[in-house]
């Protein structure tokens, strides 16, 4: 069940996006892939809107309201798993 090679690239890209778009506001935070964005306070509610928008447009995924959960969007790990599961193959 290891991450695919494509998945590694995906992880790096998603991390780069989160760092560039959100982490500059939290220079003291060393974000690990399993860390929860909301718990750490690195993404606020409107930031969450931007994050979901970005995932939708970048990977061509139509996100349903019920899918906007911390399980799917709450951490780098969650994002990678969600995009891998949902993006068109």
């Amino acid at each position: 069940m290891g991450e695919t090679e494509v998945g590694t690239g995906l992880r790096a890209k998603l991390r780069a996006y989160v760092e560039e778009a959100f982490l500059y506001l939290h220079p003291d935070v060393e974000l690990r892939d399993e860390d929860q964005f909301l718990e750490l306070g690195v993404i606020d509610s409107l930031g969450f809107v931007e994050l979901v928008e970005e995932v939708q447009s970048r990977y061509g995924i139509a996100v349903d309201a019920l899918e906007i959960t911390e399980e799917n969007f709450g951490s780098i790990d969650a994002l990678v798993a969600f995009v891998e599961r949902r993006r068109p193959s």
Binding site: D44, S45, L46, V49, E53, Q56, V63, A65, E67
Partner: peptide
């Protein structure tokens, strides 16, 4: 169509109707 569900949630979760400042929750949060 691209703002989608997260945008909706932002508005619908930005405070409870009983809060006197309810109307301004989204602006204050943004």
């Amino acid at each position: 169509e691209r703002r989608g569900p997260a945008w909706r949630r932002f508005f619908f979760e930005a405070g409870a109707p009983g809060d006197p400042l309810f109307s301004h929750g989204p602006r204050i949060a943004a």
